[in-house]
Design a protein around this nucleic acid. Structure first.
Lengths: 114, 114
DNA sequence: CAATTGTATTCCCGAGGAGGAATATGTAGC
DNA sequence: GCTACATATTCCTCCTCGGGAATACAATTG
């Protein structure tokens, strides 16, 4: 389970939609995801297989159903990967702060209510 | 600049390597990235174009050089996208906490300072 | 057992995209 | 101007990967 696997997996719009659906609906069966996504069943199963390989979802067998749910491990790995760049956008804020303290006139004042 | 653009862009290993190189080296020219990455110049320029479209990098013209640097906006957008799933891995911790409070013997006690 | 439902897998096809080579554009220096 | 260097773009090829249809596997029901 590397961040690379996760980022490869989420680099596809329909897989991101499935993640969003699982987030919104909670644990779901394949049929429910087919219904909710508009994709066909084989496509959903294939995407879920990729997501499983990236530890973004996990499965639980329940009779002839398979219940899928989000797996926090992969999601957190990707979050951390982007978090490692946090200094980049922190630097942006620092620059903005510096601009403000150097020349406050650069910033538009809030519109005043009458 | 949507999170989708960013995630599509980082869904490619060499682009992730370029982001890592820019993070490690700071602002760099194309030639320096060619040298550091082992990729050929046209490939680097093409990847940088995609990264620019996703607002992951920005450019500054400097004579016949073009200096590229990371752009915090795209990076932060992706970070936030994954952050929207934070409840998923928080739920994992909550489950762990519950285990701990149910049976403290499961967790090794902290070593006490004398 | 057969029939039905839920899911996974296989095979094929086509679009997209990454890499290579060559070329175009732009800029500096003589 | 011409030449050299830095970068961007074009064209082509190959290959990965997503979608569709059909099929295989699994589990429930009668």
């Amino acid at each position: 389970m590397s961040a690379a696997d996760v980022l490869d997996a989420v680099g596809e719009p329909n897989r991101r939609r499935l993640l969003g659906l699982l987030h919104h609906r909670g644990e779901s069966t394949v049929s429910e995801l087919v219904e909710a996504s508009g994709l066909r069943q084989p496509q959903v199963s294939k995407h879920l297989k990729v997501l499983t390989g990236a530890v973004l979802v996990s499965t639980r067998a329940d009779g002839r159903y398979r219940r899928y749910r989000l797996d926090g491990r992969g999601l957190q790995a990707a979050h951390d990967w982007f978090g490692s760049f946090e200094d980049v956008w922190q630097a942006r804020f620092d620059t903005l702060d510096e601009l403000v303290s150097t020349d406050p006139g650069l910033v538009q004042p809030e519109e005043q209510l009458p």
